[in-house]
Design a protein around this nucleic acid. Structure first.
Length: 107
DNA sequence: CCCGTGACGCCAC
DNA sequence: AGTGGCGCCACGG
């Protein structure tokens, strides 16, 4: 049977976020909160994080373009996730300065 | 209902 | 510039 969504907005939120994220071009990045606001849900950065966390491993979505508002990658620096995200960004030409993406890369 | 948790964010120090 | 504290939201125990 179909699982009944607890609230229909939970699903709508993910859709909105994913749509907006798919509009971010390679070489650009966006903050969790910025993405939430763009999707029409200001102050809901943590929900964006949860959506990304629940993406399938084989997703086509450019999850790596989402950073903290200070330009740093959200994962702990020693983690494999961090290394992966950083290399994906580097491959797109994103420049890091002391583990931080410079402002002009922001969408 | 209260409390802890989280791929967050802002503002004081 | 780095750190800490708190606010913000949704969830689960």
């Amino acid at each position: 049977m179909m699982d009944k969504p607890r609230t229909k907005s939970a699903n709508e939120f993910s859709i909105a976020v994913i749509n907006c994220l798919s509009d971010i071009p390679a070489g650009k990045v966006i903050a969790y909160g910025q993405l939430a606001a763009m999707a029409g849900y200001p102050r809901q950065a943590r929900r964006v994080a949860k959506v990304l966390k629940e993406l399938p491993k084989d997703t086509q979505l450019a999850w790596h373009r989402v950073l903290r508002s200070d330009g740093r990658i959200a994962f702990p620096i020693e983690s494999g996730h961090y290394q992966l995200q950083r290399s994906l960004l580097t491959e797109e030409g994103v420049i890091f300065n002391n583990n931080r993406v410079i402002k002009r890369h922001f969408f």
